[in-house]
Amino acid sequence: MIDRAFDLLLIGGMLGLAVQVVASRALFRSVVLFIALGLLMAVVWARLAAPDLALAEAAIGAGLTGALLLAAYRALQPAGEAGDAEPAALPRRWALVAAVLSGALVAAIGWAVLGLEPPAASAGREALARLGESGVKSPITAVLLSFRAVDTLAEVVVLFAAFLGARVVAEPLGRAGPGPRPDPAGGEPVLMPLLLRVTVPMGVLVAGYLLWSGGHQPGGAFQAGAVLAALGVLLRLTGRLQPVAETSPAERLALVGGIVLFSAIGLAGAGMASAVLAYPEGWAYTLILLIETGLTLAIALPLTLLFSGSAGLRWRGR
């Protein structure tokens, strides 16, 4: 009973937020509401027994997406201008047509999904049944790095491609990303070093913990990479990491190392184990942990650089 009430309230809140994100007149309100929606999505994943997704959503929704959106909002909305200056929305009748079409889409999706019978033999049941063959105890990690490793490989390639694409169209260094820091001469808030001293070491620790725990409980390269990326965003915003126009050799290694390592081990699998992207007997856990470490960097660095709007970063502590 109370479970159902919780679910209904959560769904109501989520849909209410989504409506306001779309309908709100002030753009800043939409952005903040969208960030809040991300937090609510973490609770939704928690309710649906998907703690892995809740972890990823907490790191990405709370840290990365919000920072990206706020920086873009500031860049697209100069302070001098009043309000949005958004051109008027489509005429009312078009809006009505759009609403009807969306409604039809909703009905179609709902009808199709509710009509599906749960299949007797699903890939998920198969994955759970053969968990022992994967070398890890967490079913999600097993699917990501053993049974469907090719998806994960493609995903880091997509991330790398997004970074390359952003390099092609990026604005000049001084304007890209969050832009220049305010009051460079005026110093920074007194509490900022305290925040960094607590957040950065603990964040690195948590990322390592998530990476390690991916083998047997919720966690893994995705979540660890997202946490490190959020820390990178924090360091970039506070000027500890400065944007530079060139990618250093170490950064190049981190950007492509995960992909190269994953591909190499995958190809070696064709010779030493049964198939491409299969692991030799007894080595699965070690290799998966090795690949995950490479992946963590291959996820964290492009995301930080996408936020920073630069080709590279240099440490400039205080």
Partner: peptide, 28 residues
């Protein structure tokens, strides 16, 4: 594992506020 999620949310909550206060308005 949801406790780890809670830890992540508190750890990264400040990133958003820093992004809000430390990203310059473009007129600046």
């Amino acid at each position: 594992a949801l406790r780890d999620v809670a830890l992540l949310v508190v750890l990264l909550a400040a990133v958003l506020v820093v992004a809000f206060t430390r990203t310059p308005r473009r007129e600046e």
